[in-house]
Design a protein around this nucleic acid. Structure first.
Lengths: 154, 154
DNA sequence: CTTAAACCGTACCAAATTCGTACGGTTTCA
DNA sequence: TGAAACCGTACGAATTTGGTACGGTTTAAG
């Protein structure tokens, strides 16, 4: 557990495919066939990505979807945000109604919030371009991150 | 979204309370009253934590629960693991059955896996002790992490 | 100017998960 | 012997998730 939902996973798969030919215009049907995902689901996801301004759509025959900006400038955090809303590890963080009366004298909530921030930044540091390349194990940001976490505390 | 489940949140709240007097033996009823959480839920969580060997239980009258080891040696990753199982951001990572035929030539899955590792390490780096102290914003591991992620990629 | 390819939006449904409850059993202390 | 506490299983309602249906609009091509 602690997982992103399936649609977000699909979204990154679709977007990473589009990132390979960033100026192309892709139809929902083509993407669905290419990724072996149900067409209505792909459509639904694409529409959400348009609303979040990660894609632009072109209507009519020969229409389709294309990236709204270069793949380097689209972060995984933005994709998650588009599909599932703000990253919020706990109810408390999303704040609003759910009535954590304690927050003032509750160390836990502020610490979760801190962890949440770290995750957020980490995901902002990974772009669609990174995600679409096979060897992102070498991605400098992530690699450094892994090592630093290890050494920072032990 | 991208959140831990509520029980995990409760678990950290309960454990951080116990971490304040680590040698004390706490009854489920007392913890539930203190955290204003429904007693059966608290019980359920405590039992899961025993099974994961983060707590030890003492049966009978005057029984209760106490930490199985020092708060410094219990990581948040371990707590998540105890309540919701292994950290697995995507279906693909949990692997097993769910048939990602592509994994061989799918850059996305390996990259999610990499991100998953980073999160795992980050959560292993935060102990229950950190979590129970109000100013973990000053926690060296996390603080450094935040800054480093920012600078590593931009 | 008609047709077909494509996107658009809303609404709906079924399955899975989550959150919480219930209840009967066992161990230990006083 | 009784009360306080843990133990385990199983259940059920509510939410979330994953996916479908369908009728509408826009645009290119013949």
């Amino acid at each position: 557990m602690l997982r992103i939902n399936r649609e977000t996973d699909y979204a990154t798969a679709i977007l990473s495919l589009m990132a390979q030919e960033p100026d192309e215009c892709y139809s929902a049907a083509w993407l669905s066939a290419r990724r072996c995902l149900p067409a209505p689901v792909v459509s639904k996801i694409l529409k959400q990505l348009v609303r979040a301004q990660l894609l632009v759509s072109h209507r009519g025959a020969k229409g389709g979807y294309s990236l709204a900006r270069p793949a380097e400038e689209i972060s995984i955090a933005a994709v998650i945000n588009a599909i599932e809303g703000p990253i919020a590890l706990t109810d408390c963080i999303e704040g609003g109604n759910s009535a954590c009366q304690y927050s003032a004298h509750c160390a836990v909530s502020s610490n979760w919030s801190r962890i949440n921030d770290v995750f957020q930044h980490a995901l902002e540091a990974v772009s669609l371009k990174d995600m679409s390349e096979p060897l992102a194990a070498e991605h400098p940001g992530l690699r450094a991150l892994g090592e630093r976490v290890r050494s920072a505390v032990n």
